[in-house]
Each structure stands twice: as structure tokens, then as C-alpha cells.
Design a protein around this nucleic acid. Structure first.
Length: 501
RNA sequence: GGCCCCAUCGUCUAGAGGCCUAGGACACCACCCUCUCAAGGUGGCGACACGGGUUCGAAUCCCGUUGGGGCUGCCA
């Protein structure tokens, strides 16, 4: 598509009815990308008109999450609840122009008539226009409906899906003002887009069916207000679905962006992965932001739904983690390994169902944590984790008082290995006097392996478990070198004692 | 039920009528490397939903079928 003559104004308009949904994050990203490459404005509008379900902290959560992903708005946040005056003005204008009429039907009455119609062979669902020409006055808790034409089609020109036609006869007279006088989403949304001079509406495909209503409303508003505002361009993004192909649901799918943050996904990796859902940069998938900004095209967006694949996200996060400079990695890992309070901690995210944190705080005391010690092993940690929340288990042996106790590992490599005592004793004897560096440790341990007639891989297991607690983990000799002779030998002796007991 | 959307390996996708014996990535499997575990390397498995057209030629265009999904609230 050719660049618009005037810079675009796109909005991200979430409703604060829960945590920040990954689908929302993807929509925000595509808006943001589009606006950035055209020198436009990214507007954040919080649609908080549903008093029953909104909570201020959810709005804060959206802002924090956008900030985390590096997509802070250029304008806003605007709160829809603050736009009441313009909503009311629009309602008055629409009423005066005759575009609306009051309806006294209850849901039950409408359903009843639908059933009767169906029984008579008419399959048309929805409102039948019962009150359309009754000339009922406003008030008395009556909702206001929009008078839709009976003939013709409404055409949506969609930037990703092409032209989509909706036959008018399938479009019922929909409610746009509640019985309490407040506007419904379909109206408030359109009015706000007008007052905020929005040029591009980029949102999920689930909004496509309401688009013809908004287009009709837009036209009616132009007439009623004597204005001639250009309709925004629409772009409906493919839905994000779960493994069963269903739209991601807050109920049963892991969709909270905050949760991914707590689990230690890097924002750059998360954003990169999000960009790949419904769009492709072509050759290389792992692309820096600059390339994303250069290559992204709304018209290249896929039309079919995309599965949110945590495995691929994790792979990508691992790649980003490994690509970090070591000091960058140390800094990024801080909230997961340093028990001292920081400005944000992974335990701050609690599962909405259980109320429990999804990530536990480090098991060691704040005073035992040593960033220098951590940094000295950072390079070997870096290539072994896929997310930052996996880091603590790799380094706990450094900061806990004793070796971590993993019963399965102890049983497998020490208690259940009749050669373990000999290896442990030999290691203890040798380690007490040898030069303390990883090369010397490596050679000595190899010598012990030779004398007991085992490969080093087999011989190191008891030592590893005695000192580091588990059969798997960081490279042994690097770890011992950092832990130190005193503590290493103490733990070897402790394992021997435990074995003897 | 009605309206709308969608359809390439298990998944995300490349593919804009001949470059396709359909390419890449994740996952999976095997081997190599190796002090465990990773990382890395090499190789393997694996898809154009089906049926009709159009065309010299179709994954690509058209129609239909089937399948999947979304919407169908005085929620947003």
C-alpha cells in the first residue's frame, strides 16, 4: 500500500477486564509497527465503560505491559469513561436525525418472537424491528436501536482481507444506547475514533462482524452532525488460537503477558515471536526490531488463524538469551536470582485462579547472593536456559548453605552406586591439596576415573551430586572452581558421611 | 439456525500460473561433538483438504463440497 498522505493515527483500544492478553499484545504490536513505519501516532484508549467488570489496576497492567514490550503509546492513555460528553452529544444528534428509535422489548419477548418465526419457517434470527415504527419516546429504561436499511449491502474494505460484503437484511436493528442512557461499545468506539481522528483501525478478526454496524453509524453520524469525516481504514488480524484451533480464552489458555514476563521471557524475544503470528519476514525469522520495522506490511498479514506455540516462543527466547552480552545477561537475570527487592519481581504475578505466584522467589537468603559469583559463571548458564526463571535451579548450589538435596539424584549417583564412596574419597583427598583451577580439577578427576576404570562422564556423577545436588547442571569443573576448595571439600565429606550413616 | 472469515508438513510459515522433485523455522528421531545437561553440527521424518473447471501448464485463478473458526449480549 502507498503511504498515506497524512501520517496515520492508529489506536489500541483494550478493555481493562483482566490481565493483558497475548492476542491484545499482538494487536498492539501490529498497530505500533504500522504507525512507526509511517511516522504516525500510536494512541492508547482504555475502553472502561463496563463498570461491572473494569478495575483500575487492570488498566495499569496494560500500560506496564506495553512499556515492557517497548510499545508505549505516543498519545494517551485516554479513558473512554472520560468521553461521556461527546458520547451524549452523538446520541442526541443521532436521535434528532431520526437514526435511532426507542425499543421497549425485553430479551424474552425477542427470543419468543424468534421462535415463533422459526416455527413459521422464517430462519432470520435477531431483532425483528417490533418497535421500529411505534414512535416510542425515550426514557423509562428503553434502549435505543439503530434503524438499519432493509436493502443493499455494507461493504468493508479491509486491508488484510480485501472487500467483505454484509447483506443489509442480515443486519438487525442493533442497540447502541443502553436503557440507562449510556452508549454501547459499537457506538462509543465509533464516536471515539471520530474525536481522536483515527485513520486506521487494526484489530482482531473477531471484530469483523461489528464493522458494518460501525460503518453505518459513521455515516449516520456524518449526517447527523453535518460533518464529513473520512471512514478509517480497517484491518482485521487473524485470531490467535490454541492447540484445538479455538480462539485463545482467558479461562483455559495461558494468555497473560504478565505471566510470560514472570517466567522470564525477554521482551525482545516475545515481541519477535508475536510478530511471527500471522506475518512472516521471509527468510530469517529471528529479526531485530529495525528489520521488523523495515519489512512489516499490513497487506502481507496472513488471513488464517495462528496457533500460539509456547515451544517455539521458548526456543526463540533461548536464542535471544544466548545472544545477550554476558553483563546484559547478568542484569536481565537479576530479578530471578537476587532475593533483595527490586522495582519488579517475578513473584508479583500470581495465577488468577489459584492466587499463587507462578514463580517462586530464590531459596537463598539475600546476604548469600553474590553477583560477582553469579557473573563468573554467567556464560555457561546462558547457554543452558531457555527462560530466566530456569536460572535459579542452575545456581542454587552456589548460594545455599549446603548442596541442594535432590533425593532422586542422590539415590542414583551416590547411594545406588557402589563405586561412589571410593570416588568421593579419592576426590576429597586430591581436591584438598591440588591447584584450584578448572584445568587441574579436570585432570585430577580424569586420573581418578582412570584408576577406578570408568569414563570421566560416569566417574564425575557422584562428585557432581555431592557438591551441586543434581545429576544435571553446569559444567562441574567450572562450578567447583567458583565454589572454592573449602566448600567443595566440606560437601564431599558431608556426602561421604551421609552415605556411611 | 443466520451472517462472515479461513484452508501448504504436527505447529508457524515461504510460495503472487512454469524457478516446486513444494523451501525455511519449531517440535520429533538418528548420528557427531562432549565431564552431566545444554548449546552446536550433520542427516531423517513430514504438507498443497477433496471434486470440478480455466490454461500448453495450477499450491497459486474460478466454482462447488467438506472441514475448521468467528460473530450472533442493554460485554468490550
Amino acid at each position: 500500500m502507498t503511504d498515506p498522505i497524512t501520517p496515520p493515527r492508529a489506536r489500541f483500544a483494550p478493555s481493562p477486564t483482566g490481565f493483558f492478553h497475548v492476542g491484545s499484545a499482538r494487536a498492539a504490536l501490529f498497530n505500533w509497527l504500522f504507525v512507526r513505519q509511517h511516522g504516525g501516532t500510536f494512541v492508547l484508549r482504555i475502553e472502561d465503560t463496563d463498570e461491572a467488570r473494569n478495575r483500575p489496576e487492570w488498566a495499569d497492567g496494560i500500560i506496564t505491559a506495553l512499556d515492557w514490550l517497548g510499545m508505549s503509546p505516543d498519545e494517551g492513555p485516554y479513558f473512554q469513561s472520560a468521553q461521556e460528553a461527546s458520547h451524549q452529544a452523538a446520541i442526541e444528534a443521532l436521535w434528532d436525525s431520526g437514526a435511532l428509535y426507542a425499543c421497549a422489548c425485553t430479551r424474552e419477548q425477542i427470543d419468543e418472537r424468534t421462535r415463533e418465526r422459526a416455527a413459521a419457517g422464517d430462519p432470520t434470527p435477531g431483532y425483528d424491528g417490533f418497535c421500529r415504527d411505534l414512535g416510542l419516546p425515550r426514557g423509562d429504561g428503553r434502549a435505543l436501536r439503530f434503524r438499519t436499511p432493509d436493502e443493499g449491502v455494507v461493504e468493508v474494505h479491509d486491508l488484510v482481507r480485501g472487500d467483505v460484503e454484509f447483506p443489509q437484511r442480515a443486519l438487525e436493528d442493533f442497540i447502541c444506547v443502553k436503557g440507562n442512557g449510556k452508549p454501547l461499545f459499537v457506538l462509543a468506539n465509533a464516536v471515539d475514533d471520530r474525536t481522536m481522528a483515527i485513520s486506521h483501525v487494526i484489530r482482531g478478526e473477531d471484530q469483523l462482524p461489528t464493522t458494518p454496524r460501525q460503518i453505518m453509524l459513521w455515516g449516520a453520524l456524518n449526517g447527523a452532525e453535518g460533518a464529513d469525516l473520512a471512514l478509517p481504514a480497517y484491518a482485521h488480524l487473524p485470531l490467535l488460537v490454541n492447540e484445538r484451533g479455538k480462539k485463545l480464552s482467558k479461562r483455559r489458555d495461558p494468555v497473560a503477558v504478565e505471566m510470560y514476563r514472570a517466567q522470564g521471557y525477554l521482551p525482545d524475544a516475545f515481541r519477535n515471536y508475536l510478530a511471527l503470528l500471522g506475518w512472516s519476514p521471509g527468510d530469517e525469522e529471528i529479526v531485530p526490531l529495525e528489520v521488523l520495522l523495515e519489512k512489516f506490511r499490513l497487506e502481507d498479514v496472513q488471513r488464517s488463524p495462528a496457533f500460539f506455540d509456547i515451544q517455539k516462543l521458548s526456543h526463540m527466547d533461548g536464542v535471544y538469551l544466548r545472544a545477550l552480552p554476558v553483563d546484559g545477561f547478568v542484569a536481565a537475570a537479576r530479578p530471578w536470582v537476587d532475593p533483595a527487592p527490586g522495582e519488579w519481581s517475578p513473584e508479583s504475578w500470581t495465577d488468577p485462579d489459584t492466587g499463587a505466584p507462578v514463580v517462586s522467589p530464590p531459596a537463598w537468603a539475600p546476604e548469600r547472593y553474590d553477583v560477582g559469583v553469579f557473573a563468573s559463571l554467567a556464560d555457561v548458564i546462558q547457554e543452558r536456559v531457555t527462560t530466566l526463571s530456569e536460572v535459579p535451579e542452575l545456581v542454587d548450589f552456589l548460594f545455599l548453605e549446603d548442596a541442594p538435596d535432590d533425593p532422586d539424584s542422590f539415590k542414583k549417583a551416590i547411594a545406588g552406586d557402589e563405586g561412589a564412596a571410593q570416588i568421593l574419597s579419592a576426590a576429597l583427598a586430591a581436591y584438598e591439596v591440588c591447584p584450584w583451577d578448572k584445568e587441574a580439577l579436570h585432570e585430577l578427576t580424569q586420573a581418578i576415573a582412570d584408576t577406578v576404570g570408568r569414563k570421566l562422564g560416569k566417574a564425575q556423577a557422584p562428585i557432581r551430586v555431592a557438591v551441586m545436588g543434581r545429576t544435571r547442571g553446569l559444567p562441574l569443573f567450572d562450578s567447583l572452581a567458583v565454589l572454592g576448595r573449602t566448600e567443595t571439600c566440606r560437601r564431599l565429606a558431608a556426602a561421604l558421611a551421609r552415605l556411611a550413616a
